[in-house]
Amino acid sequence: MTKVEIFDPAMCCSTGVCGPSVDPELTRVASAVYSLEQKGFNIKRYQLTTNPDIFAQNNEITRIFKEKGPDALPVVLVNDQVVRVGGYPANEEFAQWFGVKPEELNEKPKSRISFNLNQL
C-alpha cells in the first residue's frame, strides 16, 4: 500500500483559508488529501508548527532541513522516499500514486451545523 507524507512549512492552518487571503494551492492540496483520506488511503500531512517532533524523527526531513533550511518545505515522501522538495504534487501525481482519477480529488470537507432557533 502506498504511503504519502507531506511535511508542510510553518503556517496557521493547512487549508489555505485563514489569514487575509485564500491560497488556492493549499486549498487544492487540502481537498486532495481529504478526498484520499475519505477513501481510506495512507496519506498524512505534518506542519512544522504543530508536529516538530515528527520532523525531527525523520532522517530525510532533518537532512533536507539542515541542507536547505525551512524554504525547502513542503517536502513530500512516497513510501519513505523524497519525491518533491519545495512544492506540492499535482492532483495527477496524487492520482497516479493511489490509482484513482484526478477528478476524484476535488471533494471538499463538509461540516454539518445543527442548531435550534427556538433556543436562541
Rank of each mutant, 00 (worst) to 15 (best):
K3G: 04
P20H: 05
A32K: 04
L73R: 02
M11I: 03
T27N: 10
A90Y: 06
E92C: 07
A10V: 11
L117M: 10
V75Q: 12
L73W: 09
P52M: 05
K108H: 05
P52D: 03
P74E: 03
V29A: 04
Q38S: 06
P20E: 12
I61L: 15
T62G: 02
G19C: 07
D23N: 15
C18Y: 09
E93P: 05
E60P: 02
A72K: 04
D23Y: 00
A30F: 02
G87T: 04
N79E: 10
E37P: 03
F55V: 12
V100A: 10
M11R: 04
D80E: 15
K3A: 14
E60D: 15
V4K: 00
Q119K: 01
N91G: 05
K3E: 14
L105T: 07
C13T: 13
L26R: 06
V76H: 13
G19W: 09
P52W: 01
A72N: 10
I113R: 06
Q96W: 00
D53E: 15
E107D: 13
E37Q: 15
D71F: 04
K110W: 02
P109E: 02
Q57P: 00
G99V: 03
I43W: 15
S14H: 08
E67M: 11
L117A: 15
K68T: 06
K66I: 08
E103C: 11
C13V: 07
F94I: 08
Q57A: 14
E37Y: 02
F115P: 05
R45D: 05
G87R: 10
K108F: 07
R28A: 11
A72V: 08
Q81F: 01
K68D: 13
V75G: 08
G40C: 07
I6R: 06
E37K: 15
K3Q: 13
L48W: 01
P70K: 12
N59M: 08
N42A: 13
R112I: 15
Q38H: 02
S21Y: 08
P9T: 03
